[in-house]
């Protein structure tokens, strides 16, 4: 059987699982909405003169989408540990199905579960005045899908390696804060000293955030966009290859 067909079978399995857990959809949507309601007003009065809601949304929505892309992939490790403990992974690993498609089923589900709330967030924000640049946002979503795929594969593999929630939670949530702070997604890095900005350049998320602002403004071809894809495409390939190796070797 082709890897594509297998991947679709695993993808379907994961989607059905999600559909039966409407809580996930709710949680996926609630986080961005909380940011819009509780965080965006804080940004309004930052700097002088105070900014309008539209200005704040225009600068904050791309960052919000990036956070959403990051968060959508993070949970994969927890699901993995649950599936390890219930024996599902072991049962699937005895089948001749390729390890790559087992990985990709979950990754694609997470990507889908990033796209759906993102589109809703964009729609809601456009009602509040957010300027929608269609082509730019499309390229941005594509870039962010890569981010979700990376985080999802990474988290799932860590779940396979640690096999228990403690270790996984320590690494994933431990890295989440420095990665997001050093990407400039919450507050612009231009506020920080040189050394902080220097470190940020080692963070792949930084390039994504930089590109997200430009793309949301509707500018597609820019140095930022090229840099972001130049970093994220090889990184996606690298992480997926590594994760497939982990799946192949995994001993539960």
């Amino acid at each position: 059987m082709s890897v594509f067909k297998e991947t679709m079978l695993f993808f379907k399995r994961k989607v059905m699982e999600t559909v039966r857990q409407p809580m996930w959809l709710f949680m996926g949507l609630s986080t961005p909405l909380i940011y819009i309601v509780l965080f965006a007003p804080l940004l309004k009065n930052m700097g002088y003169p105070p900014r309008t809601t539209v200005e704040v949304l225009d600068s904050f929505v791309p960052g919000l989408l990036t956070l959403l892309a990051f968060g959508s992939g993070m949970g994969a490790g927890w699901t993995m540990i649950w599936e390890l403990q219930s024996g599902v992974i072991e049962r699937l690993r005895v089948t001749p199905a390729s390890r790559f498609s087992m990985l990709m089923g979950g990754v694609l589900r997470d990507v889908l579960m990033f796209i759906i709330p993102s589109v809703l967030v964009i729609a809601i924000c456009s009602f509040l005045g957010f300027h929608v640049h269609f082509a730019g946002l499309l390229v941005l979503l594509l870039l962010l899908c890569l981010l979700t795929a990376i985080i999802s594969a990474w988290s799932a593999s860590l779940g396979l390696i640690f096999k228990e929630v403690g270790g996984l939670a320590a690494v994933v949530t431990g890295l989440q804060l420095p990665l997001t702070l050093l990407s400039g997604v919450l507050l612009p890095l231009s506020l920080g000293p040189d050394w902080l900005r220097a470190i940020a350049h080692a963070n792949p998320l930084y390039y994504t955030v930089e590109a997200s602002r430009v793309l949301a403004d509707g500018i597609i071809s820019s140095a930022e966009t090229i840099n972001a894809f130049a970093v994220m495409i090889p990184l996606t390939i690298l992480v997926l290859a590594w994760a497939t190796r982990v799946y192949r070797k995994a001993v539960a």
Binding site: R13, M16, E17, S86, G87, V88, E90, R91, V94, P96
Partner: peptide, 20 residues
């Protein structure tokens, strides 16, 4: 890979997909 095609395995914890 060939061995996998010819065997079935029922582990102690089972491994049926509970939400399906």
């Amino acid at each position: 890979g060939e061995v996998r095609k010819h065997i079935g395995y029922v582990s102690q914890i089972g491994g049926a997909d509970l939400p399906a």
